[in-house]
Amino acid sequence: MIDDLTEQDELIERVARALKPLPPLNARATAGILAAVRTRSAQTPSAWSRAVEWLRQPNFSVATAGMLAAAALAIGFVTRGAITPAGPAALATEGNVSAPVMPAANTPSAVREIPVPITFDAAGASNVSIVGDFNDWNSAAAPLKRFGANGPWTTTVKVTPGRHLYAFMVDGKLVVDPRAPSTRDLDYGGEASVMMVPTP
């Protein structure tokens, strides 16, 4: 009986040993965490408003709403279902105009932008930014910061729900995201990466 108990304790120890191996530290995943934290810090500056939001939404997911996680991790970014009102864009700002043939579409301020944490590996680069249809392909609009001395580059961009084209500007050169699907541009040639942002 005592031998049986000892063996059984040994069995539980064997079980625990089988479950104990630690996965390696994942620089991309940890960079994603930092990017997500920075996104939230940018959205809700006061600790009080952060606490209120947390209490109101106990089941929110910072990662992809559960749906995009695999693809998002594979394509270098995760989305966050937070809401930030978009700033007004320059729609019909040319002053007084006569009635157009095509009535102007709804103002962009009604469209909610989603903060999207971005990570990108570019080990030897000095400057990395993300350019796309969400920032008029402006390389100064969304520079990435390097995580640690040799880690991935990260930032957050605000994007409306839907399909968006983008690329990375790495030391002055346009580079597609190797982890994202890409599409060929029939007008300009070359390729651009595609991100799909769900409705929150």
Binding site: A89, E94, P108, D136, D187, Y188, G189
Partner: peptide, 26 residues
Amino acid sequence: RDRGIPREPLLSRALEGVAKNASSST
């Protein structure tokens, strides 16, 4: 503008071309 077509997607498309060093005719 005269046709009432939204400006942002067109400007964005143009600036994409600029970023990709496309010619003015392209």
